[in-house]
């Protein structure tokens, strides 16, 4: 093994080892199980259910309550009823399944109205825009709707919703 390839191998190993903490899985590199579930964390950092609750309720983040009712958040008015209630999602689905649904609900429900929250490929959309400006998207800044860590946080929060 040459010196150069050795250092490359070491670097690769470091990435794998460090992966639990640092490496993020990009949307294109997601490994799906049974077509609909994602067993591995997208961020490598455990989800924080408290941060997840903020993402679920915040209009400028996940805005999940726009379409989903959630009994555990009585402090938030105007919960939508387009999609199913979030109640009991942690009892009905596994963590890997919830990660799959939050990242790309259209895998399990192909006709779903639910947006794909973890896809950064503008080619997959019809006339994607620059956020909510009505202007064309900027290839430099087009990104997923939620970050890898936000997906993890939301999944961690949903796992706490076991009553229904």
């Amino acid at each position: 093994m040459t010196r150069r390839s050795l250092s490359a191998a070491c670097a690769a190993t470091a990435v794998i080892w460090g992966g639990a903490t640092f490496a993020e899985i990009s949307p294109a590199d997601i490994v799906w199980e049974d077509e609909i579930a994602i067993p591995a964390s997208l961020s490598g950092t455990p989800g924080d259910p408290v941060a997840g609750a903020v993402t679920v309720s915040s209009r400028s983040a996940g805005n999940c309550l726009s379409c989903h009712q959630n009994t555990a958040m009585p402090e938030h008015d105007f919960q939508g009823n387009i999609g199913p209630s979030l109640d009991g999602s942690g009892a009905r689905w596994s963590e890997a399944e919830l990660r799959g649904i939050v990242a790309n609900a259209k895998r399990v429900f192909p006709e779903s109205m639910m947006p794909v929250f973890y896809n950064d490929n503008p080619e997959d959309y019809i006339r994607p825009g620059e956020a909510y400006t009505a202007r064309a998207y900027n290839p430099e800044t087009f990104s997923t709707l939620l970050t890898a860590q936000q997906v993890e946080d939301v999944v961690a929060y949903l796992m706490t919703l076991t009553d229904w």
Partner: peptide, 12 residues
């Protein structure tokens, strides 16, 4: 119409 397409995060 423009407002609706804007709200889809789309290019109107």
């Amino acid at each position: 119409f423009r407002g609706c397409i804007r709200d889809t995060r789309g290019e109107s």
